[in-house]
């Protein structure tokens, strides 16, 4: 069965007919070809699929596309400027070596943006707690935490 869906993705209005079983992550990756949102586990554990729905970080592998009809979605593709200038949080991950393979990074960056929206001056402990739902299998978190701190400071400027 297919259902009509309209929502906004990275500031653009999107309308599509999708199978009702479509997960938000499938809609983003397959229908919209926004493959920056990753699938690490598909069981709501790893956070690689994290995107913002009306500003709230959620795991898009555990949400139906139908549940976010009418919402504003932000994915990693929606952060950089039109000229390719990185968002301060992306720039901080690059600067601080907050990534190695980069698989977890889109989810980390979007999770960090939800955090900064609530705690612009989060301390290390708050950052670690806020990123509890985002797993990284290679960087080892130290530089990720540093990146989030650096990115938050750059955003406050």
């Amino acid at each position: 069965m297919s259902i009509p869906l309209s929502l906004s993705v990275n500031g653009k209005a999107v309308t599509a007919d999708v199978d009702e079983r479509t997960l938000l992550v499938e809609f983003l990756r397959h229908d919209l070809a926004l493959t920056g949102t990753h699938v690490g586990c598909d069981t709501a554990q790893c956070g690689a699929c994290t995107v913002l729905v009306d500003g709230r970080a959620i795991k898009s592998c555990n949400v139906l596309a139908a549940q976010v009809a009418g919402a504003k979605i932000t994915t990693i593709e929606g952060l950089a400027g039109a000229d390719g200038t990185l968002h301060p949080m992306q720039a901080a991950f690059k600067e601080c070596h907050g990534l190695q393979c980069g698989f977890c990074t889109p989810g980390m960056v979007l999770g960090a943006l939800d955090l900064v929206a609530h705690h612009p001056h989060a301390d290390e402990r708050t950052i670690r707690e806020a990123l509890e739902g985002n797993f990284c299998r290679c960087t080892g978190y130290q530089n990720i935490v540093k990146a989030v701190q650096t990115g938050a400071a750059a955003m406050a400027k």
């Binding site: 956070g47 709230r56 959620i58 795991k59 949400v63 999770g111 739902g133 985002n134």
Partner: peptide, 9 residues
């Protein structure tokens, strides 16, 4: 409960 993303839904 869970993590930030779970608490947001």
């Amino acid at each position: 409960i869970g993590d930030r993303q779970v608490r947001n839904m």
